[in-house]
Design a protein around this nucleic acid. Structure first.
Length: 109
DNA sequence: CTTTCTATTCGTCAGTCGAC
DNA sequence: GTCGACTGACGAATAGAAAG
């Protein structure tokens, strides 16, 4: 399933990513910038850096979504187990009540 | 087979929340 | 304020079932 990579949505059509700007330097990434200290990065380097940051953000979010779904599945499974246990318990209690009622009826006769 | 419908899975975006 | 992590919502891709 989904063997072919998903078509990347054009950010410009969804209003960009203003709510998810990353401005802090990520360790390691800045190392790729040109080696001359003190010189400003060219526009080309800036877009490459932005692109790398975006890829990193997408990768992290991808992983986060996987983990989120895994946890949700686990949670649902737990709930289902609990339902099964409670249903069983309820059944037992109903049987018990029935038996006690019978006992009580025969006593009063 | 082929087509259509439905369910599932995945990646992405956008919004929220807590930590700093 | 800003950041990273988390998660609901959405659309696309895919699988499998049902109908013709």
């Amino acid at each position: 399933m989904a063997l072919t990579g998903p078509a990347e949505k054009n950010p410009s059509t969804t209003g960009g990513m203003s709510a998810y700007q990353i401005s802090s330097p990520v360790s390691g990434l800045s190392q790729v910038m040109d080696g001359s200290p003190g010189s400003l990065p060219s526009p080309q380097q800036l877009t490459e850096e932005a692109s790398r940051k975006r890829e990193l953000r997408l990768m992290k979010n991808r992983e986060a979504a996987r983990e989120c779904r895994r946890k949700k599945k686990e949670y649902v499974k737990c709930l289902e187990n609990r339902v099964a246990v409670l249903e069983k318990q309820n059944k037992t209690l109903i049987e018990e009540l029935k038996a006690l009622k019978d006992l009580y009826c025969h006593k009063t006769e």
